[in-house]
Amino acid sequence: MNCPDCTHDRTRVIDTEARTGGTAVRRRRECRCCSFRFTTYERPAWDSLQVKKRDGALEPFDRAKLRAGIERAVEKRDVTDTTVTSLIDQVEATLQERETRLVSSNRIGELVSAQLREVDVVAYIRFVSVYKAFSDPEAFRRELDAVLDGTSGVDEGQSPQPTTETDNYHSDTTNP
């Protein structure tokens, strides 16, 4: 592990601690050259989890990409980095519990928006305005009205949008 301060390649582990229910390991490290201390996290690689995008393309799940989207939504809001990390951990844990290794980007968006709505409604509105890609100002207004009224955002006469077919795949169907 290279030191982020001086880039020296000799560091030592000072402290190790299990995080998020044993799915990650937090390590405090110290550079042997400049004594700079820093923290690293180890998480299992999700090589098998694939995200199906709206255009049908498949790409590996990327925690950093998920974090970037959430951080854009909470920018300049009173939401701590710890809260963002916790939200990402909850979404990731929900995805791990699924039987399938193929998940639609819409499902990830639903999970994030549900969590963000509990954390900060302004961040929620920012996130869904991109995630739902409103093409009609009235649709955006209905979503905003639903938040202000405290409802789910789905008109009472409508049923929620059905999940996409990728949410019904099983892990054995995604393996080559």
Rank of each mutant, 00 (worst) to 15 (best):
S129W: 02
I70T: 05
D47M: 10
S152Y: 00
R10W: 06
S48D: 14
F61H: 05
E71N: 11
R141N: 05
K53N: 04
Y169P: 00
D155W: 00
S35D: 14
E118V: 11
K65L: 06
R117N: 05
T39D: 02
C6H: 04
T83M: 11
V128P: 02
E118R: 13
K53R: 11
S86T: 14
G22T: 09
T174E: 07
R26G: 12
V130M: 07
P60R: 12
F134G: 06
D47K: 08
S129R: 01
G150W: 06
E42G: 02
A45E: 15
T20Q: 09
D15S: 14
S159G: 12
E71I: 03
T100G: 12
R27G: 07
V51W: 01
G21N: 09
Q96M: 14
T23K: 09
T100F: 01
R63K: 13
E165I: 09
C31P: 08
A64W: 02
V130Q: 08
R101G: 03
E156T: 09
K65A: 15
E118G: 14
S113F: 06
R37A: 03
R67F: 05
E17S: 14
E92I: 02
S152R: 11
Y131R: 04
I14H: 05
L49R: 05
R19H: 01
D15F: 10
T23F: 07
T23P: 00
D9W: 01
L58V: 02
H170S: 12
T20N: 11
S129H: 05
A114M: 10
R27Y: 09
E17V: 15
R101V: 06
E97A: 15
R141Q: 13
L102D: 01
T7D: 13
N106E: 10
D89T: 14
C3T: 10
E110D: 14
D81T: 14
E42M: 08
E30Q: 15
E97I: 04
K65G: 10
E156Q: 04
V112A: 05
S113Q: 08
